[in-house]
Design a protein around this nucleic acid. Structure first.
Length: 158
DNA sequence: GCCAACGTTGGC
DNA sequence: GCCAACGTTGGC
């Protein structure tokens, strides 16, 4: 049977906290610290082989900078149990963890940042949910047609 | 700094 | 279950 088509996602991170260069250096990373149920549920629906656009948020200019691949799913987020961690959740416990995450592998960066502004010029909020006004979700699905178009537009990875 | 658009919390 | 108050995200 042919390998299933990957699904595509957009995952935000602030470059000061964890940017594409951090990921490039590490090769892969646990996408931990997600404390929003909707974002968590999107992560739960990810499959190995899915691809995710790395989006730099809360910076100038915000936009898509690279591409990642899901290499592990259903992992418990270790930061929820550590009282000293920023993402500690006192309502969670190891026998009943509330937050989980996936592991992502670095595939590459694009030759230039694809800014939010230029994304707005080209796509509607339906084609690219990150464009929805006031959107705060840090993990979003991207329709396959938009994803393919983006990949074509962004060109080869570096 | 401002503010839109949510999500969360807690009183009732 | 309702809702007010508050917190967070993230663009501008």
């Amino acid at each position: 049977m042919a390998k299933q088509d990957p699904n595509y996602w957009l995952m935000k991170s602030e470059p000061d906290a964890y940017g594409i260069d951090h990921l490039k250096k590490e090769g892969n990373t646990l996408w931990d610290g997600i404390r929003n149920y909707q974002a968590r549920n999107f992560m739960r629906s990810m499959l190995i082989g899915d691809k995710a656009f790395f989006y730099h948020s809360n910076c100038k200019p915000p936009g898509i900078v690279g591409l990642m691949e899901v290499i592990e799913t259903g992992l418990v987020d270790p930061t929820q149990f550590d009282p000293k961690a920023k993402y500690y959740d006192p309502k969670s416990s190891p026998d009943k963890p509330r937050w989980d995450c996936v592991r992502l592998h670095y595939l590459g960066r694009f030759s230039e940042l694809l800014s939010l502004e230029s994304l707005r010029d080209k796509y509607s909020a339906e084609q690219l949910p990150v464009l929805r006004k006031g959107n705060r979700l840090s993990i979003l699905p991207i329709p396959k047609s938009t994803a393919n178009d983006l990949l074509q537009w962004l060109g080869p990875l570096h």
